[in-house]
Design a binder for these strands. Sequence first.
DNA 1: GAATATACATTCGTTCGTGTATGTCAATTG
DNA 2: CAATTGACATACACGAACGAATGTATATTC
Lengths: 207, 207
Amino acid sequence: MRRTKDEARRTRQRVLKAARAVFARQGVARTSLEQVARAAGVTRGAVYWHFRNKADLFFQMREQVSLPLLDRIELALSPALQRNALADVERMLVTLFSDIDRSAAARAAISIMNYRCEYVGEFARELRGQSERTASYIDRLTRAYRRAADAGLLRPGTRPDLAALESCAFTIGLLRMKLMPGGARLLGGRQRQLIAAHVAGLRARRA
Amino acid sequence: MRRTKDEARRTRQRVLKAARAVFARQGVARTSLEQVARAAGVTRGAVYWHFRNKADLFFQMREQVSLPLLDRIELALSPALQRNALADVERMLVTLFSDIDRSAAARAAISIMNYRCEYVGEFARELRGQSERTASYIDRLTRAYRRAADAGLLRPGTRPDLAALESCAFTIGLLRMKLMPGGARLLGGRQRQLIAAHVAGLRARRA
DNA sequence: GAATATACATTCGTTCGTGTATGTCAATTG
DNA sequence: CAATTGACATACACGAACGAATGTATATTC
């Protein structure tokens, strides 16, 4: 019973969604493609038709949710805005984390990448990708903080490169804390203030 | 050929060390106890004698390296010192990360816990433990920053609870960055300055 | 110095997951 | 409207890996 092109696209999406759910619950390694298939209402044959293997499925699952988020980060830090670099960084962080709060799919994917996945073997290249994206993130932040420094917005003595590294570590660490079991309780609704406090530590104090 | 009590203790250590190495290279899930045994120069029988299963081996492997580090953190943040809370935090972070730089075993274990392990099934309780340790770390930091605030060391308007959350996220994120492939390159020998910059963001500016 | 417990080594049966190969049937295509 | 191909389902072969069971020989214990 051959499906139409659009039906195929939808089954593919169903498999991706099922993979997110099952990976998040059982971990990537402990999940068989049979389980993903069952959760998607298809057989392993269908999964192997759309994806070469588990690693391929994993990559595409991640891209589906991470690409939009990364795009928004890049956009928010693009020099085009040029208004107030520090405020831009703060707004970027606030929207990033509230985007995540609003999207269960994003939370599941980030949780998988933080706690439910071993970056080994064919998954090692994913880690190299993360490394590159981190470097790029640091680069954007560095430029933003340099602009801030040029505009006299940065606290005197603050090195843009170090501030960028700090914000990067802050972002990664906050993500990891947030996705921990009980991580929401640790933050306790102070997410926005926390971000504000982080940026405040970089800001020049008005005389 | 029954071994003496001391020989048994040494084989146990060899298994723990081998587990660290193999877990770090292949990931926990993709490592069979047969591989650990071979790397330790024993058979699976020996491994199963000293440890109930893979999870048990994992927990004890982690404890062996994390307990000393956690002890030093706790000690460095204990109110007993009472000298300069901000300097205490900075010194604690510097020693923590230079301890890690000096210990290949610590790096391997932290790398495993960040990138080579899925916190699922019997490993889920490890994640709950991490959550508790994180909460405790935040608590220590909060107290330290409160003392700093009382001494007028904290930048005015800085809330100790938010500062503690920020330092916690910073620590977790920096650890994760550091253990990434090429993470050392990202930091580029600026580790100490980075920590100093982080604490500087919390410090009151002298008039 | 027998008895027992310790510290392993070896063997075994069973389960599980993967990748591929093959079957099937309907949408397209020319 | 035959031929082909796309989108799966089903079947098969293969190799782990686990846990338990059993074997064994030597330290300890009494």
